[in-house]
Design a protein around this nucleic acid. Structure first.
Length: 457
RNA sequence: GUGGUUGUAGCUCAGCUGGUUAGAGCGCUAGAUUGUGGUUCUAGAGGUCGCCGGUUCGAAACCGGUCUUCCACCCCA
């Protein structure tokens, strides 16, 4: 008995229809990336572990797929680590490579390595799979595609504005109404400064984020249990009442963060971006200032983005932000970068759920099928087959001389519009019988007429 | 990482409180119909009931473990 095959947890196969739908999304994203001046690069699926580790926070490191060294890797491992079952130390010794976790860190590595060839500011896009050893669930896979656009080598806030427009352009063309959430790490640092606890910042934002779920009292309780002091909470109380337009929120924040230079800088940055966007206007998307937006990735220093689809309950379908010193880790200073990412697989789920694929995606399929009546007849068809292809008409011949019923069935299932029948009689008269599958009409023609008939249909 | 859920034919799923030989629809193959399809009718092939162990006279069903599916939390795209 043959063993049952399977694929690893969190991975998927894609059928022809699914590939066509994915290609449709890729094409739109790519088009807009290029309209905004980005150029494509690709990087390897796996990197040296040292490039990846430590860039995504503790949680991120845990989710990186490690690749075992080749050869007799255990021979080189330290016996004491093995004896103690010290996984992290042993892992470092037996694994020197890892699958990429996102496209931003490999991009930073790329920039540093190729700095002499690049023209700055460098604008690149990249659409490749990434891998995370996460537990799969709805919209979460272990292998999925990210489509990233980044600019490196400019601190200008114009980039923030442009990326919001880029988000809007792509989601609007896809037909998805999206909310682009915006925040700034400087605001978060300012808040941390005010509450006097930089290490409590994550707890703080997580608690604050639950405001509309558990109410003010619930949030305060959670903060207290996480060790944030009563006085600190009192100081940032205005955050609980943060509402109204973005301008009003910014004014509240400005008052709140008056004693933090960094916080005020964040307010000023946000104000520029928000005012620019409101002057320009957005197509289908909505821009929303969200001070609870934190994002786990360690390397962000300025603006942070997250995009959610308004009509589908799913995690974020895009994210990004500014990172002032990502290349610094690899030895290239003063290279501020900013970028955004599109989660292809989640966007796919959104389009599917909203029924936005139907009219749009067409599967590549042949227009003409030559039936196979036997060796001589099939050989005779090859000339016509070639002629069709040379006229850019998709055509194929049934490979085996099976029953006509079976061959016609095949044509039906593949929804092929025309079949060509060449039997003994056509062969002798040098003719082709063309049959229109929907109507059942057929006519016997010579090669020129045959091409003409299909071309004109 | 925590909690739950799922697994029976190629596919979608039935299968009662444990009881003879495990079912249906779709698909597949063949025939009705030897050069004309989609419909219909008839027949046929196809299953170590995810895997390992346990309870029992007897397990697809109950118990334990394990893998897998999907979901929530955490985190994220």
């Amino acid at each position: 008995m043959a063993q049952k095959p399977g694929i690893p947890k969190g991975t998927r196969d894609f059928s022809p229809t699914e590939v066509a739908k994915r290609d449709y999304i890729f094409a739109i994203i790519k088009k807009h990336f290029e309209l905004f001046g980005f150029q494509p690069i690709e990087t390897p699926s796996f990197e040296n572990s040292s490039t990846l580790l430590g860039k995504y926070g503790e949680e991120g490191d845990r989710l990186i797929f490690k690749i075992l060294n080749s050869g007799d890797f255990l021979a080189k491992a330290d016996e004491n680590f093995l004896k103690d079952k010290n996984s992290s130390k042993v892992t470092a010794q037996i694994s020197e490579k890892a699958l990429r976790y996102d496209l931003t860190v490999p991009f930073a590595r790329y920039v540093v390595q190729h700095q002499n060839e690049l023209v700055f500011p460098f604008k690149r896009y990249q659409m490749q799979p990434v891998w995370r050893a996460d537990r799969p669930q709805k919209g979460r896979f272990r292998e999925f595609y990210q489509c990233d656009a980044d600019v490196i080598g400019s601190k200008s806030l114009l980039q923030e504005v442009e990326f919001i427009q880029l988000y809007d352009a792509i989601f609007s063309e896809l037909g998805v109404t999206a909310t682009i959430k915006l925040n700034n790490r400087k605001i978060l640092s300012g808040i941390a400064e005010i509450i006097g606890a930089k290490d409590k910042l994550i707890n703080f934002t997580v608690a604050l984020d639950k405001l509309d779920k558990i109410g003010e009292e619930g949030v305060v309780n959670e903060m207290l249990t996480k060790g944030i002091s009563q006085e600190a909470i009192a100081k940032v109380k205005p955050l609980f009442e943060l509402s109204g337009t973005s301008e009003e929120k910014l004014d509240t924040l400005k008052g709140l963060l008056a004693s933090s230079d960094e916080g005020l800088q964040g307010v000023q940055d946000l104000r520029f971006v928000i005012e620019s966007i409101s002057k320009l206007g957005l197509d289908q998307s909505k821009l929303e200032l969200d001070v609870t937006l934190a994002r786990g990735l360690n390397y962000y220093t300025g603006a942070i983005f997250e995009v959610v689809a308004n009509d589908v309950k799913l995690g974020s379908i895009g994210g990004g932000g500014r990172y002032d010193d990502l290349t610094g880790i690899f030895g290239l200073k003063d290279m501020s970068g900013i970028g955004i990412s599109f989660g292809l697989d989640r966007i796919y789920l959104v389009l599917e759920e909203l029924g936005l694929f139907k009219q749009v995606v067409e599967l590549p399929k042949p227009k003409v099928l030559f039936l196979n009546f036997g060796e001589a007849e099939a050989n005779y068809c090859l000339e016509a087959l070639k002629a069709f292809r040379e006229s850019d008409i998709k055509a194929e011949i049934y490979p085996d001389a099976f029953k006509i019923k079976k061959q016609l069935n095949y044509a039906n299932k593949r929804e092929i519009e025309f079949v060509v029948l060449v039997g003994e009689e056509e062969l002798q008269r040098k003719r082709y019988t063309l049959k229109q599958m929907n109507s059942g009409e057929q006519q016997t023609l010579d090669l020129e007429e045959l091409l003409q008939a299909v071309r004109n249909s």
